[in-house]
Amino acid sequence: MFTGIVTDVGEVVVREDIPAGQRVRIATHFDPKTIAVGASIACSGVCHTVIEAGAMDDGRNFFVVESAKETLDLTTASEWAVGRKLNLERSLQMGDELGGHLVLGHVDGMAEIVERVDHPDSVFYKLRAPDQLARFIPQKGSVALDGCSLTVNDVDGDDFTIFLIPHTIAHTTFGEKQVGDKINLEVDMMARYIARLSEYKPS
């Protein structure tokens, strides 16, 4: 479980194919002494299990995760080449401040940036959600985009808009995102459960 508040921007430093999918080593500011093998870290919104952590020869800290084929098919993990920057968040602990919204790290699909407009005090993005997910995205509701908890501004069919403040741009990977880029999308789990309950008809 996560909150959608990014606490580090990591960098892919090693990527290799494995029979199950891919394995990546990610440089991070997180102290490896505090990362247990088996711990969960959201990598650009995708919950991954840590299989190794330590320090590299250049002094940077790292952890290693593996992505299975389904993850590669449904998320941007298939694009994680060496040098790729990733939003990172460690799992929520009991008693932590819930600064964003409850995020599972289970990405539902990918949205696409269709418009970006830079303003002096914000950046405007219009994104297009997959048709089957658009109904879960309400105006003024919450979404997780590449692991960031964000508030939806407007909704128009499959399109929705967000505004990002300079702090978010500076401390996440969104500053690099441009029109045409794919973004990991996790809809608010409350919207998903409510939709399921409204559809369910006992036999």
Rank of each mutant, 00 (worst) to 15 (best):
F2S: 02
I5M: 06
I5R: 01
I5W: 00
E11C: 10
E11R: 14
E11G: 06
V13A: 07
R15Y: 07
P19S: 13
Q22I: 15
R25W: 12
R25P: 04
R25M: 10
A27I: 00
T28H: 05
H29V: 13
H29E: 13
T34V: 11
G38C: 13
G38I: 10
G38F: 08
A39V: 00
S40R: 00
I41V: 15
A42D: 01
A42Q: 04
C43M: 10
C43G: 01
G45W: 03
V46W: 02
H48T: 13
A53H: 08
G54F: 12
A55S: 15
A55M: 15
D57N: 13
D58T: 13
N61C: 12
F63G: 00
E66Q: 14
E70C: 05
D73G: 02
L74W: 14
T75C: 02
A77T: 12
A77V: 10
E79K: 15
V82T: 15
K85Y: 10
K85T: 11
D96E: 11
G99K: 10
H101K: 10
V103Y: 00
G105L: 04
G109Q: 03
V117C: 11
D118C: 12
D118P: 06
S122K: 14
Y125E: 02
K126A: 09
A129C: 12
Q132I: 10
P138I: 09
P138T: 06
K140L: 09
G141R: 01
S142L: 03
L145S: 02
S149P: 08
L150V: 11
L150G: 04
L150A: 01
T151H: 09
N153S: 15
V155F: 05
D158R: 15
D159H: 14
F160C: 06
I162N: 00
I162C: 05
F163R: 11
F163D: 12
L164S: 06
L164K: 07
I165Y: 11
I165G: 08
P166N: 04
I169M: 14
H171T: 14
T172I: 06
G175P: 02
E176F: 10
K177E: 10
Q178L: 15
D181H: 11
I183Q: 00
I183E: 01
L185V: 01
A195F: 10
Y200P: 01
K201E: 13
K201F: 06
S203C: 07
